[in-house]
Write a protein that binds this DNA or RNA. Structure first.
Lengths: 208, 208
DNA sequence: AAAGCAATCCCCGAAAACACGTGTTTTTCA
DNA sequence: TGAAAAACACGTGTTTTCGGGGATTGCTTT
């Protein structure tokens, strides 16, 4: 393995996708597909042991959160670049992945050229984004992702379940008045005027 | 083409997935992967012209709804079996696809054996379901998918946007009191007690 | 030690949501 | 085609949210 090929691994719980990438990445000069994983845990283990240059990492996996997995890889092995692969083209998610240390973000409908382009970008220290993603990023500059507290998240969760302020208060052992404070803060932070829109936005931004 | 091979086509907007399936389906006796499409429109056109036995159809595609596409294929060519491929394992969606005429439903993380098994099931007139899907179907017998009316759907949509009954009334030119009626019926149909839970469930069931 | 923030609790008035009732059009289909 | 079912519409009370103010405690960060 002591050549100057790039060692690439792919992590995705869909065997179909893995095979697709295997096919895509064969015969690309300078790139070796070292291994594929359907399981994030096993993949992390591998990254810890072996020399890996690029990780193509699916965000949506059962069990393991892609964002967390990305952070962990980054901690284990800072030189190893992570490119997220996902079909979610929401700005909030993209931003979170990049914040978690990803060097790139590809949509799953990316063509071979885009994948290769992203890998090249990433190894030269840049950001590997597929075209669609680039547009999204550039169209939104202000990071208007609300930062919510632990308590607010709890309240949000129970609100979505349909509990009233009183009921939530009973559930988490605080006064209903406190719950309404949290609720008010949530409305403010999400820039909405009622819970309906709050739940809607929060779900779209993957807070619920 | 006048042999007894099964002509299979795959429709998915992700090239990766198409390549994955191409790889999976090669060297399977009796199966010929006739064509793949990233575009549902082109695929429908093809189905109208050519002899296709099996369509592997992605549900989540930009532009074209998988459920509608399935119905259309069924109308064009009733003998042609549709197997849905998706990563959504929600009972409601599965049920809708089957109602729309699909003969099978595979999760995208299905292994090669499951895919082949589903195809065999379907050609022999059965239901081709991957294991996970089968469990979901069997665990839920009562079709508790609310059937909502045009008006209710409209109201639901604006509720999610955060409009009040009065505002919705102005939007769709009915009395706020009527809006509240629709809202009431929505709450009943979704078996919830307030809009927060309504939005939450409706979004999970893909009504929004 | 002081500033900053999260979390808790409090009040109040206006507005909205919710529960229950009822009548009138469309659709459906036996 | 005519009855039954469903969709749509409006009205009256009661409960809950929402927005605007607060205040106190405790923990971190500087």
């Amino acid at each position: 393995m002591e050549d100057n090929m790039l060692n690439v691994i792919v992590i995705d719980d869909h065997p179909v996708v893995l095979q697709g990438f295997s096919f895509m990445l064969q015969d690309i000069p300078g790139v070796r597909l070292a291994e594929t994983f359907t399981d994030a845990i096993a993949a992390l283990d591998y990254v810890a042991r072996e020399m890996v240059d690029i990780v193509l990492l699916d965000i949506n996996m059962p069990g393991k959160n892609g964002i967390d997995a990305c952070s962990e890889i980054h901690q284990l092995h800072p030189a190893c670049k992570v490119i997220a692969i996902s079909n979610i083209n929401e700005h909030s998610i993209i931003q979170r992945m990049l914040q978690a240390g990803a060097s790139g973000y590809l949509l799953k409908n990316a063509a071979r050229d885009e994948v290769v382009g992203a890998i090249r970008q990433v190894v030269s220290g840049g950001l590997g984004l597929s075209n669609n993603v680039r547009e999204i990023i550039e169209s939104v500059k202000s990071g208007d992702l609300p930062v919510i507290t632990r308590r607010e998240k709890e309240v949000l969760h129970w609100l979505a379940k349909g509990l009233s302020s009183t009921e939530i208060g009973e559930k988490i052992f605080i006064s209903p008045l406190t719950v309404e404070s949290h609720r008010r803060n949530l409305l403010q932070k999400f820039k909405v005027t009622n819970v309906a829109a709050l739940i809607h936005n929060a779900m779209e931004m993957k807070y619920i």
